[in-house]
Amino acid sequence: MALFEARNIHKRFGSRVVLEDISLSFEEGQVSGIMGPNGAGKTTCFHCLTGHHKPTRGSIVFDGEDITGKAPQRIARKGVSRSFQMMNLFDDSAVIENIILALPDFRRRYAQITTSVFDDRALLDQALEVLDQVGLLGHEWQPSLSLSYGNRRALEIGVALAAKPRIVFLDEPTSGLGAEATRQLAELIGKLRKKYTFVMIEHDMRFLFELADKISVIHWGQVIAEGTPDDLQSNKWVQRSALGEVA
C-alpha cells in the first residue's frame, strides 16, 4: 500500500467542477511530481490532499487511515507538512524563531508562553538541527526578511520539516528563483529525499524531471498521464506541449 493515496477525488465550487475523479498515490521514500498547465487544478488538488479544501466526494488515505475532510492542523499532526506557492514566513522574526514555532515540542510546552523559548536548550538544538538540514546554519539570528530569496525558500522547507513529517508537499518550490538558486534547491531536495517523502507541484519541468521518481500530469481537472520521466517522454500530451523539449 502506498503511504498516501487520493481515491476518485471530485471538487466543485458551485457549478464549477475543478477536480473530476482524481486518483493519485505516493510511495514512501520517493519524490513525486504533479505538473500541468495553469488552471488545471493542481493547487486545488494540493488543498484537498492537505485538508485546506474538503473534497466534494472521494477519499484520502494516509498510512492506512482515512483523513478525508479532517482539518489541516489534524492532518499536519499525523505527519503531513506542506509549503505554499506564496511564502508563509514570519518576516520580522529571526530565522531560528520560524523553525522553533513549527516544532511539535514548542506547541506542547508553550501553549501559554510565560518564559523565553531561548532558555530552552532542547528546543534550540532541535531548531539548529533543522537549519543544518536545509543549509542555513550561520543564518539563525538573521531576520527572515534579510535572507536571499533562495534561502527564504530553504527556510520555508525547514519550517515544513520542523513539524517532523513523513510526507512533505511543496507547491511550486522554484517559483521566483534564478538558475543558481534553482540548482541549489535541487541539491537540497536531492539530499533530503533520503529521509523524507516529497510531493511537488512544479512549473520548472527540467527541475521536476531531474528529481522525480514519478510524475502525474493534471489537465482539465483530471489525471491524463502518469509515469516515470522516461515514460512521459513518449506521452502524446507532453510531446504536443512545450514540455516536450524538456522531456
Rank of each mutant, 00 (worst) to 15 (best):
I224H: 03
A163K: 00
W220M: 13
L192V: 04
L124A: 09
S144V: 01
I75P: 04
G64Y: 09
Q222T: 06
F169W: 08
V117W: 14
A76D: 11
A76E: 05
A76Q: 08
R240Q: 13
K191I: 02
R152Y: 15
T68I: 00
F4I: 14
H53W: 03
A94Y: 04
H139F: 02
I157D: 11
A247L: 04
S59H: 12
K236A: 04
E28L: 02
L208W: 15
L208Q: 10
L185D: 05
A122P: 00
A6S: 14
R12M: 05
I113C: 03
A94D: 06
G33P: 08
D230E: 05
R12G: 10
D91S: 08
R153H: 02
H53P: 00
D204E: 11
F46S: 10
A225S: 11
K54Y: 09
V95G: 10
G227I: 05
E129K: 06
A212P: 06
R206E: 11
K195M: 02
G58I: 15
V159Q: 04
M200W: 11
E28W: 05
S15C: 09
Q222W: 07
G36P: 14
V80Y: 12
S32L: 10
T197R: 10
K191M: 00
V18T: 03
G244E: 10
S175Y: 00
L232Y: 12
T44V: 13
L89I: 07
A162H: 08
A163I: 06
A247I: 11
T56V: 08
E20L: 02
R183Q: 07
V31H: 15
L170K: 13
A127E: 01
L243K: 01
H139V: 04
L136S: 12
T43D: 03
L147H: 15
E210H: 09
H10N: 13
A2H: 13
G178I: 14
E172R: 10
N98M: 07
E5W: 15
Q233T: 08
K78H: 04
S93V: 09
T174R: 03
S144R: 07
D63V: 11
T43P: 01
K236H: 05
M35A: 03
D231L: 08
